[in-house]
Every structure is written in structure tokens, then in C-alpha cells.
């Protein structure tokens, strides 16, 4: 699989934007990690298990994007020319590695969001949640199309937002605002194959979502 094939199947990025998206994702890794670490501190302070789940959720999202960055950078840095030269040795192993890293990225992202879903749906029956999670994770493995995976992530985010807004009645809480932006993000990214500019818009929305969290976090220390 060369760079073009990778872009067609997974990334859909305009070539000039390759690398910039990884930079945005690296920023997200850092923010998610900061929230995860501080949330763990809060869990130790309060012994409130919800903050432990928040730690897990953000930690998995953070690691998930690390795998995405790794895959993207592997393709960008190797490039087409070097791939042609080393194709005999490299191509097979690159296909194998990228398939694994993309699956790990998908799996960690979906589990991270499922934990966030569990966290925000307090009235959800745990058995129903486990069964639902099993099918969602199974779908993540089955769905070969990355776009369908993005649609799945969009649906999970939408359920989280609806839950926070209508059942928990916290429409103005930082988490509902964050997940609302994520819902917009993943829907925009899902549209990328039909409207190419959506890849850039999606990444801007993704950045904005995490910047909202970062600014809120900074505000806590300024009070």
C-alpha cells in the first residue's frame, strides 16, 4: 500500500495538509493526556469513581491518536520514491504494520468513547451496556471502511450529547459542549470522501473541541 492508496482508504487528506493533521492530532494527544492525569489526581482526592472512568476514557483517546499519528508519519516519511526502491522488503511489512496500528487506533478510540458514554448515561443498565459495547467493538473489527467507522464514532458521540442534554440536563456543562463539538467533528470527517474540504474542517473542529477543554483547564488554575 503506497501513500496514495493510504490517502484513498484511511486519510483522505489533501496532500498539502498531510503532516499538519498529524500536528493537530499530536496536540490532541497532549491535551487528552493532561486531562487524564489531572482527572486521576481528582479521583485520588475525591475517591469518586467517575473521575477514574474519565481518566481511562481520555487516556485511551490519547493513546489512540498516538497510533494514528504513527501510521500517518510512517507513510509521509517513507514516501513514494523510497517505497518503490524498498518495495520488495518494505511494502509487505508496512501493510501489516499499518493494518495493525489502524485497528489499534480504531479500537482504543471506540473503547475510550464507550467509557465516556457509560460515564454520562447513569441510568443505563450495565448488562445492556456490556452487550452494546461488545457489538460496537465487533463492528469496529468488521468495518473495513474507515468512513463507516467515523459514522459509528459520530453516533456514539451523538448519544453522549443527547444523554447529557436531555437525561442528565447538563446542556451547559463542559463535557456536553466538548462532545457536541466532537459530534460535529466526526460528522464532518465522515463527509470527507464526498466533500474533500471536510477533512480540513473536521480537523479544525477537532482542534477546537480539545482547545475548549484546555482553556477550561487553564481557567481552573487562574481562579
Amino acid at each position: 500500500m503506497n501513500l496514495d492508496t493510504y490517502i484513498t482508504f484511511y486519510n483522505h487528506s489533501p496532500k498539502w495538509f498531510l503532516g499538519i493533521d498529524s500536528f493537530i492530532e499530536a496536540f490532541i494527544v497532549i491535551i487528552a493526556l493532561i486531562i487524564a492525569i489531572y482527572s486521576y489526581k481528582v479521583f485520588k482526592f475525591s475517591q469518586n469513581k467517575n473521575y477514574f472512568y474519565l481518566t481511562l476514557s481520555f487516556l485511551l483517546i490519547s493513546i489512540s491518536y498516538l497510533f494514528k499519528i504513527f501510521t500517518d508519519i510512517a507513510y509521509i516519511s517513507i514516501g513514494r520514491e523510497i517505497q518503490l526502491l524498498l518495495s520488495i522488503f518494505l511494502n509487505e511489512s508496512l501493510i501489516a504494520i499499518s493494518s495493525i496500528t489502524i485497528i489499534i487506533h480504531k479500537l482504543l478510540l471506540v473503547i475510550g468513547l464507550l467509557i465516556a458514554l457509560y460515564l454520562t448515561c447513569k441510568k443505563l443498565n450495565p448488562i445492556f451496556f456490556i452487550i452494546m459495547s461488545f457489538f460496537v467493538i465487533l463492528l469496529t473489527f468488521i468495518l473495513y471502511s474507515y468512513q463507516l467507522f467515523l459514522l459509528l464514532i459520530f453516533i456514539i458521540n451523538l448519544i453522549i450529547v443527547l444523554n447529557l442534554t436531555f437525561f442528565n440536563k447538563k446542556p451547559k456543562s463542559i463535557l456536553s459542549i466538548f462532545f457536541m463539538y466532537l459530534t460535529i467533528t466526526y460528522f464532518t470527517l465522515f463527509l470527507t470522501p464526498f466533500i474533500p474540504v471536510c477533512y480540513i474542517l473536521g480537523h479544525i473542529a477537532l482542534l477546537v473541541s480539545y482547545l475548549i477543554l484546555l482553556f477550561t483547564f487553564i481557567k481552573i488554575f487562574r481562579k
Binding site: 482526592f45 460515564l119 463542559i174 463535557l175 483547564f217
Partner: peptide
């Protein structure tokens, strides 16, 4: 030391 932790809890409201 402890106030930011409490503030984080109030902000995230979990």
C-alpha cells in the same frame, strides 16, 4: 493545592 482539584470537580460535574 486542593482548590484546583475541587474546581475541576465542579467544572466537570460528574
Amino acid at each position: 493545592k486542593l482548590k484546583p482539584l475541587k474546581e475541576f470537580m465542579n467544572t466537570f460535574d460528574l
